[in-house]
Design a protein around this nucleic acid. Structure first.
Lengths: 110, 110
DNA sequence: AATCGCTATGTCCAGTATGACATATATCGA
DNA sequence: TCGATATATGTCATACTGGACATAGCGATT
């Protein structure tokens, strides 16, 4: 796991256990978080490709800019449901979503 | 959409709008439901392959038999988070999960 | 340095998800 | 039929989610 991802996890409030040692994660927990982060990245990518701002995407989703920011950050308060529903709404197909999820597996840079 | 799926949706409490006419779904809503049902099927498949009962899976998940039943039924009260976390816990990789999600797209039997 | 456009972060509370439990239904063997 | 095992359904208390709002950071332009 690289440094950027570590920071990203910490910022997002992912401190498994209690200590700052977020490596106290079971493999499944780790996979789940990777998966969420992969989708978060996917949302940002799709948005960038469309040349939209977070505010514009929020309008299309019937949500708020802050929530979109949290989605893209993989915030603890963002569910998979929200991420997937949002991706579908901004035009991603299930296949595209699946692609991002698969990326969660190969991304494992130890 | 075939008859079985229709019944399954109705049983699961998916009556978009208010009328029994659940076809009042936007394409994204439909995709999302298909996606959930695909994962629900995936969970059941993985469980069957392992020769486990719902009760046994529940124990492994730290959940209850009733919740596992609801997961496999694609119940309204079951989130994607729960479905995905559960699949990971019973041994499915992100790639396998992605496979089931892709299936949600090709399953569209009109 | 002031303003502007975009993004990030923190908080609130109404609405939702979930484990637990009770109970119902289904299938099978004795 | 009875009992046993597996699955389905309904409900509740509690924990979590998500839109909304406020505000802060941050680079670019003037």
């Amino acid at each position: 796991m690289n440094i950027d991802k570590k920071k990203r996890l910490e910022r997002s409030g992912w401190t498994a256990g209690g200590a700052a040692d977020f490596l106290e994660l079971t493999p499944e927990e780790a996979s789940f978080i990777e998966l969420k982060l992969a989708l978060a990245t996917g949302i940002r990518e799709v948005r960038h490709r469309s040349g939209l701002t977070q505010t514009e995407v929020a309008a299309r989703l019937g949500s708020s800019q802050s929530r979109v920011a949290k989605m893209e950050a993989g915030d603890r308060s963002v569910s998979l449901d929200l991420l997937v529903k949002s991706m579908l709404r901004i035009g991603a197909s299930p296949t595209v979503i699946a692609k991002w999820i698969r990326r969660a597996e190969t991304n494992r840079a130890v």
